[in-house]
């Protein structure tokens, strides 16, 4: 039984890792704690839902489409809104992104109502069995997709020119500027990538659970837990953080009950924040 729970936890954790990756990338590079991250994930879930609904494209196939759409949303949001106050006190930018979260959540309710939505694929609820353990197709595909996207993100940051300039800005804004990097644009691209990853995570969530605009807040806080669990600062770290959170949640849901899962997650969240060694706090990430 324990092994089965572990498997479920790891599979869920992959998606959590993806949620945390976009969040921590944006935080590390632009110093923006994006409280609208969860709403952007849900926006991705809706995009997937409507593409499936009208065009009958499979959720896993539509991930690239969703990512492109969300990248554009994120790019514009950072370029023309968040960049205008990016140098303000951190708690001001925190409030600003919270405002965006409130706005997005309500916008989605106005457009698509607060009804719970879910996507019924033909393979939903089906599983394969290895030994005595159950592997649901949607969860396994979700995990694999999350893993692939994490690897692609790492390659992008390390191997491409744009990726290099993002890392340069994260390390030393002044030096990057001198090297001809436009920080405003780089921030927008970074936020766009973070949003695209959030959108992809939304696609994965849409196939494994039902959602509505109100669940964004819980997702944002999970992104935060993942980001700090993984030690903030690397792509692999975020993925690992996701896996750890996935395992913790599955175990606490099993042993304490589904409704206590959140108690454990958020208590853990506070404890990690308080006990994290000071030295990590001021560091520049993703450099």
């Amino acid at each position: 039984m324990i092994i089965q729970i572990l498997i479920n936890g790891v599979l869920l954790g992959g998606i959590y890792g993806l949620i945390g990756l976009g969040f921590s990338l944006v935080w590390g590079v632009t110093n923006l704690i994006n409280l609208a991250h969860g709403s952007l994930v849900i926006l991705g879930a809706y995009a997937t839902f409507w593409i499936f609904h009208f065009l009958h494209i499979d959720p896993f196939i539509s991930i690239p489409l969703v990512m492109v759409a969300l990248f554009i949303v994120g790019y514009l949001m950072q370029r023309y809104i968040f960049n205008l106050a990016i140098k303000a006190d951190v708690f001001l930018t925190l409030i600003m992104t919270f405002g965006m979260d409130v706005l997005l959540a309500q916008l989605m309710i106005v457009m698509w109502s607060a009804d719970w939505r879910s996507i019924a694929t033909t393979y939903q609820g089906k599983s394969f069995i290895i030994g005595q353990y159950l592997f649901p197709y949607t969860r396994v595909l979700g995990f694999v997709a999350a893993l692939i996207l994490t690897i692609l993100t790492a390659i992008f940051l390390n191997r491409t020119k744009t990726g290099q300039s993002i890392r340069a800005v994260a390390l030393d804004m002044m030096a990057a500027r001198l090297m001809g990097v436009n920080p405003g644009k780089t921030y927008a691209i970074t936020f766009g990538i973070g949003t695209a990853l959030a959108g992809a995570a939304g696609s994965l969530i849409s196939v494994i659970q039902s959602f509505n605009p109100a669940v964004g807040g819980g997702i944002t806080l999970r992104a935060f837990v993942v980001a700090i669990l993984g030690g903030l600062g690397s792509v692999e770290g975020a993925f690992l953080g996701g896996i750890i959170l996935g395992i913790i949640e599955t175990f606490s849901a099993f042993y304490l009950g589904e409704s206590f899962k959140n108690v454990v997650t958020f208590t853990l969240f506070v404890i990690i924040l308080v006990t994290r060694p000071r030295g990590l706090l001021g560091k520049k990430y993703y450099g």
């Binding site: 809104i81 205008l84 106050a85 303000a88 001001l92 930018t93 409030i95 600003m96 919270f98 405002g99 965006m100 979260d101 409130v102 706005l103 997005l104 959540a105 309500q106 916008l107 309710i109 106005v110």
Partner: peptide, 14 residues
């Protein structure tokens, strides 16, 4: 309501 409140919050900060 939420859209306007969100917009006010963002504009206040900016």
């Amino acid at each position: 309501h939420g859209i306007v409140l969100g917009a006010i919050i963002i504009l206040t900060v900016i």
